[in-house]
Design a protein around this nucleic acid. Structure first.
Lengths: 367, 367
DNA sequence: TTCATTCACGGTAGCGCTACCATCGCGCCT
DNA sequence: AGGCGCGATGGTAGCGCTACCGTGAATGAA
């Protein structure tokens, strides 16, 4: 009798079918599914059975339309090509697992304008919550986030002035601590190399400069910010579709930049690389030139990707808790959604200096 | 007069607002937005203006509910931790850019059961199209895909029996060709090492075995499929939240497996690694043991990640067109959606053997 | 001129769900 | 006894959009 071949719609059972089968009202089914506590155990059992028999699955679009809210967790990352962010994503996806939330991913490609565009699109869809990478959004982006009317968590950095909650680590501190380690190990002419400078890279650079200054040392040379042309030239593998911005973390770029640094500052005795891929390249360039590591040159990277401890010599790096960061962000979001978030507005996950062979020419740092 | 402070809903303008402002019917606005050709130029101009003035953005949920179809492109990948798949994703996201399609991502974690679950969820949401990785879906998954009633594209592999369209490359051929290259270079005791065997890895192994057999050579030892316990033991960095399955492509695993291979087959003169990370580990183990590459040992990897050509010596690998694969899949999907797909059901993107220093002990292969 | 055909546009009726309000018992207070 | 609060349930009316069908005008053919 019910739904005798409807003219429209697919054949899927609706909440009304479940209600009819269970002999209750549609709204009761709705409640039983969303908030079982509101429904008596008797009816709940009947409804559950009907749901199972009909293999009913609620229509998320209808739900979103009727309730003016979705279960979408909007996530903005600057790249899908860097392990750094895919690790975060993994944490986010794992955190979302088993909850009602659905991740909607936006790839800003390190472009603040693109971030604005994506954000505008997301905000209009009234997501449940938003996770954005970094703390240096454009004013327009920041305004949208402030007015989004939903939990907003910034990740992978720390600021004293978060939009709502920020969970990450201090890039400046990270840069400073690794540089201090290098200084402890007796390195005196330490170069910072980086293919391209994001806001977070800059912070790392500042930390490095602070440490140098505190030790009365000076920057031996500047080897950051390759020009756009240079980056593009290196992005020769057009075939693989590698976009230029990716090039700032290619090992081949590390080799190239190390050669350049040696030219500019022949007395160089250590390089602090803005990311691990560059560090890997520097290591191989040293191998190629017969330079001993860590005796002649110390090498440090950033992020502590999985290959760092398997290198020979093993490469020092700053371990950042990326997976944990993504997971923590989702946890915070979930608590914020149910109003039970008790954590502080600023969460510093910290970093760990992983001192390995590539910088240990004196044994462990003295405390 | 219109919408005098509605009791529900957010304050966003609706299609009715636009219609009122432009002095036309709501349905005409709807048409003007989705298929401008159906509306006269006069009205179209009026409507466009109204849309701009009100800053109207259609509600995707309402649209989906009314039309029983979404603009969701469901994408299933086995991992978010392997460059291989994030490259594919990049291609997909780039391909989707500027279209109506929205990517909905599912991470199967290399688990066929999880793939089934995700697929069941996706299929119920009636996506516009589905992209799945690999061709070895479970029977249940395959059935769901066959009955999904939308374009389905399988990627990253090739089969003669695709669900609809498959775009990828032949892992067996890839394995065979790299092995042939090693044989050409005079290697005679070639081990295949792999941390864990997916269906695609197995194909690579078969290709390797075929090439050996064709040359009258035999497998010097078996070093694949670490036990689950062994993998778990290696996954000691619980802190970073690295799940065990990730471990099959860690460079440290490569070092470990190479040591094991040397034990099992002391006469070993080459290793073909199931992925580049393992190859990197093998290279470093050789450095550590003072083994010359490529003279004493030849090393080959798979996928040609960006660090391979920056190693010293540079590492040979099989280049796979991952980004292109993702992009091509989206292109096919879009054409299929508008009924203009003309390509074959089976698209082989091919692979390239990148012969570099780590296997070139005789100079370029003879034709 | 007349009628069929096409085209541009609009009205109506849902899509499947939930917010809001009403209802109906039931126990407890005065 | 009557009133009141409260918890469980249901009916109704949309959420914003589009499918379907209908209208009226313009066009072309007879």
């Amino acid at each position: 009798m019910r739904r005798p071949r409807k003219s429209r719609g697919d054949g899927r059972p609706t909440i009304a079918d479940v209600a009819a089968r269970a002999g209750v009202g549609a709204i009761t089914v709705s409640r039983a599914l969303r908030n079982p506590a509101q429904v008596s155990a008797t009816l709940r059992a009947l409804i559950d059975e009907a749901v199972r028999e009909l293999n009913y699955v609620p229509d998320l679009h209808a739900r979103a339309l009727a309730s003016t809210r979705t279960d979408v967790l909007a996530v903005l990352v600057p790249s899908l090509s860097h392990t750094v962010f895919t690790d975060v994503l993994r944490g986010i996806y794992d955190g979302v697992d088993g909850t009602k939330l659905h991740v909607q991913l936006g790839n800003t490609r390190f472009d603040p304008q693109e971030e604005e565009r994506l954000l505008a699109g997301f905000v209009r869809q009234k997501p449940s919550a938003i996770i954005v990478s970094g703390v240096d959004q454009t004013p327009a982006s920041r305004r949208m986030l402030e007015e989004a009317g939903c939990p907003v968590v910034q990740i992978m950095d720390v600021t004293d002035d978060p939009i709502q909650v920020v969970i990450g680590f201090r890039h400046r501190e990270a840069g400073r601590r690794m540089t201090e380690h290098l200084i402890q190990q007796g390195y005196r002419s330490i170069a910072f190399i980086s293919g391209w400078m994001s806001g977070r890279s800059l912070e790392r650079l500042y930390g490095y400069q602070e440490a140098l200054a505190a030790a009365g040392l000076s920057e031996p040379c500047k080897v950051h910010s390759l020009s756009k042309d240079e980056l593009t030239a290196l992005a020769s593998r057009a075939d693989s579709g590698v976009p230029p911005f990716l090039e700032f973390s290619r090992p081949s770029l590390g080799r190239e930049m190390f050669r350049r640094a040696k030219e500019l500052a022949p007395g160089l005795d250590a390089v602090f690389c803005n990311n691990d891929s560059l560090a890997l390249g520097v290591l191989f360039e040293c191998h190629a030139q017969g330079i001993r590591v860590p005796e002649d040159i110390g090498i440090a990277g950033f992020n502590d990707l999985d290959f760092m401890d398997a290198c020979y010599p093993s490469l020092s790096s700053v371990r950042t808790h990326r997976y944990r960061n993504g997971y923590a962000a989702v946890t915070a979001v979930r608590q914020m959604l149910q109003g039970s978030y008790e954590g502080p507005r600023v969460v510093d996950l910290g970093v760990e200096v992983m001192a390995r062979q590539s910088t240990l020419r004196r044994g462990p740092d003295r405390a």
